[in-house]
Structure formats: structure tokens, C-alpha cells
Write a protein that binds this DNA or RNA. Structure first.
Lengths: 201, 201
DNA sequence: CCAAAACGTTAACAAAAGATAAGAAAAACA
DNA sequence: TGTTTTTCTTATCTTTTGTTAACGTTTTGG
């Protein structure tokens, strides 16, 4: 999609959290960049500081790290979702994971320096500060739910729940990635699926 | 400790995130309450909306939920740490977990209504908004690490790491709570401990 | 101070998951 | 199109975990 439409998507995303008039948008927009991330290209890499936060306006990305030579997938971001190696981005320390495009993707990014400028800005700082807070709070809740799932549910229960909620994940993502996401091996997920098939059949 | 000292603790906690002068503190302090939570008493309960966020100035609390009649412990908060059923607090929906005092505790609390007032305040709103953002970001990072641990590490690795970092948890908390926290049963943790003993001995 | 409850370990068995390898089907791509 | 890679399943074997129960110890609370 053309860059202006992409930027518009970013504005809409902000406006789901805080209202924003045209003047405010005029102040924010110059800090944004629109970029293309080709399939298999990395948005973040281990050992490097993640200098951008982004909004996926088209496509999807996968978060993973390499352990004992194996890729272990921890998360995904789809259209209209933010992406960043948050810990690295926020702490300014080298990250541990890759963020890689699953498909050719288009991303609206905001650099660390830019976001700090925006937070400190006279005119829009207050509003953006609130936006940042609400974003962080929402992701906090997502993580809280996910940790709860690990603590209180079996892998089978986690998978069943994932099917119920019918996330986009299921349609667009290879199952061995989902297995990692659920905290089990691909082989194990395959067995879980068979067990569930038998029950529901 | 006396209420004024407790409030002072809260101020110090805020100041680890944002600077705060006396006038700002004067504006914030009236929104705070100091309360005592006796051992085994609940700060939050399932089915109820969590209306307060708090800072533990003395004591410790445990987060747990009841599944199939069993208590499953997911988290703890100690001195100088925040506590809240964040999801319930932020979304204004009934929560799912208990937050219960492990010891007689003293807590400085801020109600949902109060914190919104503070965020909207002319004088200190901007600063508190940033405080709220930084808090949420920090907790986000904690959760990110924890989810990563579940996805990439075995229970044994998680326990070993917990010992290395030598968290307060280990000293003050019964091991079957720690087992839940790590995502395994108490019996399993006992076996893990024995395995590790043999190796390091 | 005593009885009851909570706690940690261990054992025995069942269930589930990890590791590895093999094979078929589907997708990627050249 | 045909070939290679990826993906998913299945099987086998080993390891780990869950479950239940028992036992001694410690802690708690009246």
C-alpha cells in the first residue's frame, strides 16, 4: 500500500487509544518512517539494540531465538499490531531474539530517539505519553494472561483455548511455530492434536 | 511503620522513575491511603473488580487462583513492589485471582478513581502519566522475560536460574508455591532439586 | 503446651513430553 | 515443470512430569 495510507493506519491505531486532531497528527507524523520488510528479513537480531518500534500495516512477523541450534518461536505480530524487541528497545541493551518477516511486510516505524522526542514535546508529549502508557498496559495484560496460561493450564488446554479463540495465528502460521508458542515441541503438538481429534470425533 | 513513613516510601518509589518536588508530592499525597493487610487477608478476590493498586511497604503478598479445588500460585510481591490484579484494575472487569497477604503487610494504595484523577490533573498529570508508562513498561519487560523462560527453558533450567539470581522468593516462600510459579507440581520440584543436588555435589 | 495443619521428600505407577528418525504430503522456487 | 525444502504425522524409546499416597518434620494456632 502507498506510504500515506500506511501512515494513516498508524494514526488510526493511535486513535484507538487517544483522540488526535489534525494538528497533533501533523506534529507526530514527521517522526514516522514507512518501510518494507521482505520475507525472511530481520527487524531485530540478537546482540543488537532494537532501535525501532513499529506497527505492522501489512504482513506478519515472527519472534524467535536460537537455542542449541534450533529456532524457538515465542510470538507473532500481525496487521495493526505493534512490534518491537521491547526489552531491548526500552532498556537500550542488546536483544536476544530475532524478529523476522513471515511474509513481505510493510511497517511504520518510530525510532527510540524519535519517541523520546515525542514524549518530551510541548505540544503532543502529554497525549503521546498517555498513548505509550495505554499501549504498555495493554501488552502487560496480554503477557499476564499468557503467563497465567503457562502456570495454570496444560499444553493441551492451551491449545484448545487457542482453537476456541480461533486466532489468526492458526490460519497463517505453520504448526511447529505454534508448538513453540505454546511451550511444547512440534512432535508433541501433533500428538495433542490427535488426542483432541479423537475426543471431539 | 507509621503512616507518614509509609507514604514516604511511596514517594521514593515514584522518584525512582520520575523526579518529584515537594509541591508535586503535596498534590499527589492526598490521593493515597495507607492500609494494613493482615496475614491471609485478601487484597483482591476472583469475581470482584480490583479497585486499587498498591505498593507493599512492608510484608509480602501472593497471587493465586483456585483450579479444581487447588490453589495455584502465580506470583508474589515483596517490599517496595507494586501489587494489583492489573488486568482487573485496568479493564474494570472482575478478576480471576486472589491476592493474599503472606505476612502481616502494610500497603500504600491508590484507587482507580484516584489514579485517573491524578492522570488528568493539570499540575501533576503529565508527570504521573510518565510514571504510569514507565511502571507498565517495566512490568512488561518482567513478563516478557517470564514468558521467554516458559517457552525456551525446561522447569529445571528455570529453577536453576532462580537459584542463581537468588531471589528473595527462595528465602521467604514455601517451595510448593515456587513450584507453581515455575509451572510444575511441588512433587516435581522436589525431584528437580534432588537431581540438581546430585550434579552439583 | 498440645493437637492440627502445613510442608517437604520419597515411592510407585500412569500419562505426557522430549529426542530421534522415517516417510508422506504440501509448498516453495528455480 | 520438476526438484528441493518445508511441514506434519507417526513410531520407538527415554526422560520427565503428574498423580496419589505415605511418612517424618516443622509450623501454626488455640
Amino acid at each position: 500500500m502507498d506510504p500515506l495510507t500506511a501512515l494513516q493506519k498508524f494514526r488510526e491505531h493511535v486513535e484507538t487509544y487517544v483522540p488526535m486532531n489534525d494538528m497533533e497528527w501533523q506534529a507526530l507524523a514527521p517522526h514516522l518512517e514507512v518501510s518494507i520488510l521482505k520475507k525472511k528479513k530481520n527487524f531485530a537480531e540478537p546482540g543488537k539494540i532494537c532501535n525501532h518500534i513499529g506497527l505492522v500495516v501489512k504482513g506478519a512477523v515472527r519472534y524467535f531465538l536460537v537455542k542449541d541450534g534450533e529456532e524457538i518461536t515465542g510470538y507473532f505480530s500481525f496487521e495493526n499490531e505493534l512490534l518491537s524487541s521491547y526489552k531491548s528497545f526500552l532498556t537500550r541493551q542488546p536483544g536476544e531474539n530475532y524478529i523476522q518477516a513471515l511474509e513481505d511486510s510493510q511497517i511504520v516505524t518510530l525510532s527510540y530517539r524519535a519517541i523520546q522526542q515525542v514524549y518530551d514535546d510541548e505540544f503532543i508529549g502529554r497525549k503521546m505519553e498517555r498513548f505509550g502508557r495505554l499501549i504498555a498496559e495493554q501488552y502487560l495484560i496480554c503477557y499476564e494472561d499468557r503467563v497465567n496460561a503457562f502456570v495454570t493450564q496444560t499444553p493441551e488446554e492451551r491449545y484448545s483455548k487457542l482453537i476456541e479463540t480461533g486466532g489468526e495465528v492458526l490460519q497463517r502460521i505453520p504448526q511447529h511455530y505454534i508448538a513453540n508458542f505454546l511451550g511444547v515441541t512440534p512432535v508433541s503438538l501433533s500428538r495433542i492434536r490427535r488426542r483432541i481429534m479423537k475426543i471431539s470425533a
